[in-house]
Structures are given as C-alpha cells and as structure tokens.
Nucleic acid binder design. Structure first.
Lengths: 349, 349
DNA sequence: ATTAGCACTCGTAATATGAGAGTGCTAACC
DNA sequence: GGTTAGCACTCTCATATTACGAGTGCTAAT
C-alpha cells in the first residue's frame, strides 16, 4: 500500500490531523461534530463525515462500532508522525529545564543510564528505556585478573568511559595470581585504547601469527585474553517508570497489562525491541503492530541513538501507548539522547 | 491486646484455621455452612456462627458487609502463622526439584541473586525479592585504582566472594596511574581478607596513629583508602516476577496496583521493607499493616536471611497478597535462603 | 460540491427485579 | 448449658428492561 503525503488531499490531511490530535488528548473516539468545531475552515459535520468515510476506506481510521466516532489506526498514526505532526524543537527554556533535572548525575555510567530512564519516564508519563552501551564499541582502558579459586578467575574490564564489566572465566589449569598479573601487563600493553571488537580481531590474528609460539607467557596471555573477551556482549536494558502506563485508560483491562508487564520483565524481549531501533540511524518511531514483539503491539516506541564521540553506543527512548503525545515526546527523546551523548563524551575525554 | 494461643478455645482455633485456609484458597468470604462442612467435628452452621461472632469480636475476623461470610483480619493471619499453621518442611523430592531449577547458576553473584528472585517468584506465584549482600560484611580480596581523568579515579573493590563494586572518587589533586598502583599495593597488603567495616576502623586508627606521617606514600594511601571505603553502602535490591501479583483478584482495582508498582520501583521503599526483616534473626513474616511502608500494607512478606559462612549478608523472600499460601511459601523461602547461603559459602572458600 | 434532515444503530447508564448466600436471633432440644 | 432448627432480614450480584444520546449513512435540497 502506498503511503505518501500526496495520497491525501489537503482537506483529508487536515481532518486526519485534527482527529489524531483530539484522540491523543481525549482517548475517546472522535465524531464529526467535534472535528467540525475544531476545524479551521468551517465545514459542516456532514462534509467531515464524507471525508472521514474516505479516510476509513484508506485504512487510516477505524470505528470501534458502527455508530461511534473514529479512532486512528496504526497506519493513521504512521502517516501522522511522518507527514502531519509539527516537529518544532524544544525551546531554550524547556531544554534548560530538562538539563536542570538531569544535572545531579556525575560519575558512574550506570547511574547516568538509570537517571536517563527516570528523566524520560517522568517527563513523558510513559516508560523510559535505555539500551546500555554495547561493550563492543567501547575502548578498552585496562584489564585485570583476580585469582578466585583454583580454576576460576575474575576478569575485570575497564573502558575509557569508566564502565566496569566483569565476568568469571573457568580455566583448564590453574594460574597463580603472580602470573595473572604478568599476563595482565602483557595484554594491557597490547590492547589499550582499542575497541573491544578490534581487540577480538587482533587476538585471533596474533594467535594465528605465532603458531610456533615460543613465548610461553604470550601464549597463555593470548589464550586467556580470548576467553575473557569472548562471549556474547549482550546489551543490558534499563527500564524506569513502568507504573506510569497504568494511568492510561487503554490498560484498564488487567489481562492486557499483565502481558505487557511480563514482557517488560524479560530483558530479552526488550532487547529485541530496542535492537530493532539500533539499526536505523537517527530518531526512530515504531508504531503498534510495526513492533516485532507480540506483547507490546498495543504500544509505540520513540527512540534515538546516543554516542560517545563518534561511536554509536546504544539507543534510548520511551515506550507507551500508541496514543502518546508524539509532538512532545519526540523532541524530549531527541534532546535526552543528545544530553546523554554529551555527558558520555565529556567523561571519556 | 494479648495474643497467645491460650486466648482461644480449641474449637475457636479450629474454626479460625479452617476459615483462613478456605479464604486463602478461594479469595472469597467464608460462610458458616462451608466451615461446618469442612470441619472435622460435626457441628451445625448455627454453632459455627456463634464461634465466628466471637472471633469477630476478638478482632480475628471481619465482615465485608452485614450479610456476607467472614474474612481474616491481619491479626487473624498473625495468629494463624504463629500458632495454627502446620509448618512441615519440604520433602526431599520438593527440595531436589527446587535445587534442579536453581542449578544452572554459577559464577557471578549478581546472577545468583537474580536467579533467586526468579525462583522465588516462579514457585510462589508472587513477587521475589533479594536484598543484595551488605558490602560491609564482605571480606576484601583486592582493591584497584584506575586513573580516569585529572581528578577522577575509578576505585574497584573485589570481595572474596567474587563480587565487584566500583565507584568514582574525586581527588583534590591529581595522582598519576603510576602512584595509584603503588597505593593499591600498600592498601592491599594492609586490608586483604578483612571485612569492609573492619577496614574502615583500621584506616581511621592508622591515620590517627601516624599523625606525624613521615611516610608520604602511606599518608596518601590512607587518605585515598578512606575516600574509597567511605560512603553509604546502600544495599541493592533485586526484584522479580512483579507481573505475578496482577493475577490476584484483590488487585483488580488498577489504582491500588499502581501505587504498589510505584513502590516496587522505588528501591528505597523496598530497602525499608527488607531492612525491617534484617534485624530479626531467622525467618520473618510481616503481615499487611505490620509493614512500615504505606503503599504495600495490603501485601505480606516472608523473608529469611542468608549467609556466607558465618557472616549475615542479606535477606531474601517473597512479597505478595496477604492472602498467600504461607504453608507453602514459608518452607520455600527458608530453603531458598539455605540454598543461596550454601552457594555463596562454596564460592568464597 | 456542500449541507440539512432524518431514520437508524449501538453502547451506556439508570432502574427494577429476583435469586442466593449468609447472618443474627429466638425458641426448642438433649 | 451447650447445641441446633427455623426464620425473618440484609445485602450483593446478576439479569432484564428501558431510555437516552452520540454518531452514522443516506437522500434530497441548495
């Protein structure tokens, strides 16, 4: 189905816009009367009705039942955000208001992420999401090994942004702390400042190069390094303000809500949702059924990527009822992403 | 108000037990007929009614409205869990079932905690809670410093249990990485194996001792050490299975649920709840209005402390509707705490 | 092309009705 | 005296009925 601004006449676009804005504000089906009242060009309800019938035929509007007003379909929302909505950026005053709310954060990256979800959820009255930095893209500052027990070694990875990742590696045979320190020194010299994905490539290459491997220490270092840097770098997801969406009238039904909350609890589901957005560049809007995850197909999503210097790190945004205030939330998400990027870039320098 | 088992006659205790068990199972007010039917000693509904009237007068039962059955009050539940409930421990079969579900975890302590909340919530059909290890009690394995920027230093603290804590410390004047390493060595020699709270005491003492402080390095080490180990060691809270309580008929009202979920999102509220339990030793049951936190006074709590060797680390348990299956959940929580303690103790050795 | 008029549809809110569950009380019973 | 049958009474809940109003779609007039 084609979906271009020119598919609709000026009048149809006007009517669609008014209906969606009205519905977003009221959560109730919009009738021809109220459109006629709000519509700039004075037209009678009857005329509006004709237009509405057309828009319904085209799939932009639907009726909950025969004699009720119209409700936007997902397609209608899509058209709205693509062509109808006015996307004015935030005013300076609004920006500084948000900045002030964000200020208290400094230090830990985790706190920054958590604070971002709070900010997003608080100002949008929806649910805030942050897909934590993909570790792959981060530059390694340092790696440390701590001997825990015979075969278990704690690997600590510090990035230039001050993030700390750790995991436990199981060894084939014991390595004393003494040697672990040496190995750490070797590896640190090798990888400092490189991104994690580069490090992985390098280690593979090095190992192949030194087949003969006269240097026993180097061999063990490369081996342990590979184990340490391997493994899925599954992104972490921060979520905040879930209680907010309970306000929405569309979730008065407890059963619907339960399935949504179930999905929110499953990190993997959230990851799937946010991954969908990471591929796009720039601000992304996913509306209702466009979403890949079943349980949240009554919800919509506004996300924007954030960066550290030139590296794309992750994405953050808001998930809430499809009937959300896009024209308020989009600038909010956009600005928050900028703010987070700025903080992360400052910290890394 | 006195509250001892002897306050009630044998018959009253029987009736109260039957009513509570019935109500827990059905979530509906219990009438005299159904008590009479279920009651061992064959008594007529009329007799039961007299007993019920007495129990109502004593504050153990209440009526939703004049001509409805009886519902237990918080006091009634309290009496039930204290004196009426049969507390049979788990069978071997049940224990091994739980163990099997728990098995996959090894390695990171965070994963263990998260897994515990899943286990608890899954088997109780309520919400699982774990108050993360109080760092104070943990033994220090190692401390590391990483220079981030001129005045910011990343402090990494590793405990013998393999937990990694980190925070950022702001310096008065810059210390190069070189010297940070030396300081780390000094501190590590000083504090390895001690509990964090002991370390704090030691540092204060040492600093007072060496007023003259000829050793410049030691001085700086103590100073940085103090900064690093200072600060509230606010416990972290893990929570899982929040979606579960939506099943419960008592939360059909969305507004009630919203306030509960709001409380769940606030870590500080949860901390307050769990702190209440940490003071007790052994398994703790907090019923409805006994709870200190307003928002969850319609919920009850079953918690048990967990340990690493002989150190009390934290507490874990289940929060759910007051009408929960205590006789199933209590053994579950008890056993889970044992299981977690066992894992943590193994890891630390 | 637009609009007024009108019959029609459908959901919602208000009201009435009856059934059922349970109580409390009284009087009879063992 | 404790126990029980009987009975009138209360209150909720489910169901049916009704009335209302918002909104539509169509037709015919402008």
């Amino acid at each position: 189905m084609s979906n271009a601004p020119t598919d609709l006449t000026e009048r149809e676009r006007d009517v669609l816009r008014v209906i969606i804005q009205d519905y977003i504000a009221s959560a109730e089906p919009v009738g021809s009367r109220s459109v006629a009242r709000r519509h700039g060009v004075r037209l009678s309800p009857a005329t509006i009705r004709n237009v509405m019938a057309d828009l319904g035929e085209l799939g932009y509007l639907s009726q909950p039942h025969t004699s009720a007003g119209r409700v936007p379909t997902d397609l209608g929302y899509r058209f709205y955000v693509d062509y109808l909505m006015d996307r004015r950026p935030l005013t300076r005053a609004e920006e500084s208001m948000i900045e002030r709310r964000f200020r208290p954060v400094q230090g830990e990256v985790e706190d920054l992420m958590r604070e971002a979800t709070k900010l997003l959820s608080g100002l949008s009255r929806s649910v805030g999401l942050v897909l934590a930095p993909r570790v792959d893209q981060l530059a390694v500052k340092r790696i440390e090994f701590v001997h825990l027990s015979t075969e278990r070694v704690l690997v600590i990875l510090i990035t230039t942004s001050g993030q700390v990742n750790h995991k436990i590696v199981i060894l084939d045979d014991a390595i004393p702390q003494e040697e672990l320190n040496k190995i750490a020194r070797v590896l640190n010299n090798l990888v400092e400042g490189m991104s994690l994905s580069r490090v992985r490539q390098l280690l593979v290459k090095k190992m192949a190069e030194e087949k003969a491997m006269y240097d026993e220490l180097l061999r063990r270092a490369l081996e342990l390094g590979q184990k340490s840097f391997a493994g899925e770098t599954e992104g972490d997801v921060y979520i905040g303000g879930t209680a907010n969406i309970m306000h929405q009238p569309e979730f008065a039904d407890v059963e619907k809500m339960r399935s949504i909350f179930g999905a929110f609890e499953e990190k993997s589901k959230l990851l799937k949702i946010l991954d969908q957005c990471l591929d796009q560049d720039g601000l992304t809007i996913v509306i209702g059924s466009e979403n890949v995850v079943q349980e949240v197909q009554r919800l919509s999503l506004v996300t924007a990527p954030y960066w550290c210097a030139e590296h794309l790190l992750g994405t953050l945004g808001v998930i809430g009822p499809t009937r959300m205030e896009y024209s308020k939330i989009i600038p909010l998400v956009d600005f928050t992403a900028k703010l987070v990027s700025q903080h992360l870039t400052e910290v890394a320098s």
